[in-house]
């Protein structure tokens, strides 16, 4: 089983990218599970088919340990298994601790043994801002971390922070840094900035995603480009990225 976590500055396109990678892998016949680790519970919108299911934490709030796996796992486009961790009531509780609770719930209920996914993708909110958001890279969860970034200064800054956190946790046997995925925003000296980032964090670019209106159009339909525009350049871009991630994982 391959387990990958995706981090990056808020709004950089993590959910869009992860959903398209899920769709591309499912298209190739893999059983994929996508786990949204964001209190907003919006990671899997573009893959959903069935009526929306409650997030793990919503159910834990209502039913506590009586919550079942079937209540939180839904099947989406090409049977991608979809889970949303969810979060506390806005303004209350602790979102990071919520992620830990949701991940532990999946573990306790043996989600990976029950559904046997070939690939698990953790789509994690933004930066590693607290212990809770490091949960998907703890031992037994993701094996590799991918950082999404553009050449924008704030995005590079977040990428640096994430890489530092990943490096710091190596002593604890956490996930390793798999590489950088560039979501181009066509800012000045974008390539040079990314190259410097990679040098600073001792990593490399594993995929480049060009800015695409097709992706936006698919987003508007709440679909991935793989589904909405399967023959498009953008769809092939995500297919290439998915292949690259698989190869990296097998290395």
């Amino acid at each position: 089983m391959i387990k990958l976590a995706f981090y990056g500055k808020g709004g950089i396109g993590k959910s869009t990218t992860v959903s398209n990678v899920s769709a591309a892998l499912a298209e190739k016949g893999y059983t994929v599970m996508q786990i949204g680790c964001d209190p907003k519970a919006d990671s899997t919108i573009n893959l959903r088919r069935e009526p929306e299911k409650a997030a793990v934490l919503d159910l834990l709030r209502e039913k506590n340990q009586e919550t079942t796996l079937e209540e939180v796992v839904t099947r989406g486009y090409r049977d991608v298994l979809l889970v949303e961790a969810g979060g506390p009531t806005p303004g209350l509780g602790c979102a990071g601790r919520g992620i830990i609770a949701a991940m532990e719930f999946l573990d306790d209920k043996k989600a990976y043994e029950v559904y046997h996914p070939d690939v698990v993708l953790f789509d994690v909110l933004g930066d590693v801002v607290c212990g809770g958001f490091a949960m998907p890279i703890r031992e037994g969860y993701a094996d590799q971390v991918y950082i999404l970034t553009s050449g924008e200064a704030m995005s590079i800054h977040a990428a640096m922070n994430i890489a530092l956190a990943v490096e710091m946790f190596q002593k604890r046997g956490y996930a390793t840094l798999g590489g950088v995925i560039v979501n181009r925003r066509m800012v000045n000296q974008e390539e040079e900035r990314i190259a410097k980032l990679c040098k600073d964090i001792h990593s490399s670019v594993v995929g480049i995603l060009d800015f695409s209106k097709t992706v936006q159009e698919a987003d508007d339909r709440h679909q991935t480009v793989i589904e909405a525009f399967p023959d498009s350049y953008a769809a092939n871009m995500y297919r290439r990225l998915a292949e690259e991630l698989l190869e990296n994982a097998h290395d």
Binding site: C94, R97, I100, R138, E139, K171, R172, Y174
Partner: peptide, 16 residues
């Protein structure tokens, strides 16, 4: 527990 301390990871670090 509320802090979500990772005892398994910390123990690994201490063992190293």
């Amino acid at each position: 527990t509320v802090m979500g301390t990772d005892f398994i990871g910390i123990a690994r670090e201490i063992e190293t």
